[in-house]
Write a protein that binds this DNA or RNA. Sequence first.
DNA 1: TTGTGTTTTATTGCCTCC
DNA 2: GGAGGCAATAAAACACAA
Length: 325
Amino acid sequence: MITGGRVLMGSLTNASNLGILLQSQAAPSSSDSPDAFFLSGSSASFLGSRSMVSFEDVKRGKGCNRSFFSPFDHDENGDEDLDDYFHQPEKKRRLTADQVQFLEKSFEVENKLEPERKVQLAKEVGLQPRQVAIWFQNRRARWKTKQLEKDFESLQASYDSLKADYDNLLKEKDKLNAEVANLTEKVLLREKQDKQEDKGEVKEPEQAQQPLLDTCSDGEGSKVSVGACKQEDMCSAKSDIFDADSPHYTDGVHSALLEPGDSSYVFEPDQSDLSQDEEDNLSKNFFPQYTFPKLEDVDYSDPSESSCSFGFPAEDHDAFWSWSY
DNA sequence: TTGTGTTTTATTGCCTCC
DNA sequence: GGAGGCAATAAAACACAA
């Protein structure tokens, strides 16, 4: 179906090309053939194929690079073969490797065609300007498809990386949640025991106010050894240390633990139990404003328990807590 | 050889720009 | 309104396994 100006333009282009064919007399067997006149009334695509052939033949006749015109390179008996060729039904013909290579190089330089460049390229490669334009059009489409594939792969890689990070953070968060639950349970249990002891026996005032950490002392007074705590696992003991006096907990659980004057405030450090040297050592470790045992005093019998530090600096824990809850 | 999937060439219709 | 670009599509050419 031939509708619209585009096809008409193509027909005119091909018709003018046919004119070149006829004027150049480059195809003697066809110039006097009825097909030459038949072609002028044929479909645009039919003319296209014919006109391409004729244009190539014209170029060849003018001594252009023969390698561009491989359909005829094998043609030693030109007239006969051309005659056969012109009597073939319409066939779509691919560009030769040389033509494609030439166009590819041109495409690399500039993927769009100005009219002058299109004509110039067409002359150099031995095609119609319209064929060159179509080739560039299709080449841009292929380039765009490949570009989209590259972009997709890049985005996919980014997504996979972020997903892995996110999954790791979720795991860490679950660990920390479990630890919080464990510690909360233990603190409540301890609190309950303390209350029962208060009711059942009279305590000396100093003992009654003994902080939880002191219950873990090894009996040497100032030396605090969490490793001597029989009832606490290492992770929770260390977490007791971290939790003590931490100003960053704003949730209900931690604030309840840390509120001075509240009956549940059991982690008040008794600084009188620590020597100045020990306090200095502690300050060198993690939180200078806090007082707790040195980490190296902790007996991590199970290496896996070292994961309580979660692989990132202690100061990051607070950020993580505040982020997670 | 043949069926099938892919690539390439070309057309069509729509859109934008001048 | 014409020229040219793009997306969608047709169809020929090609590649390749069975």
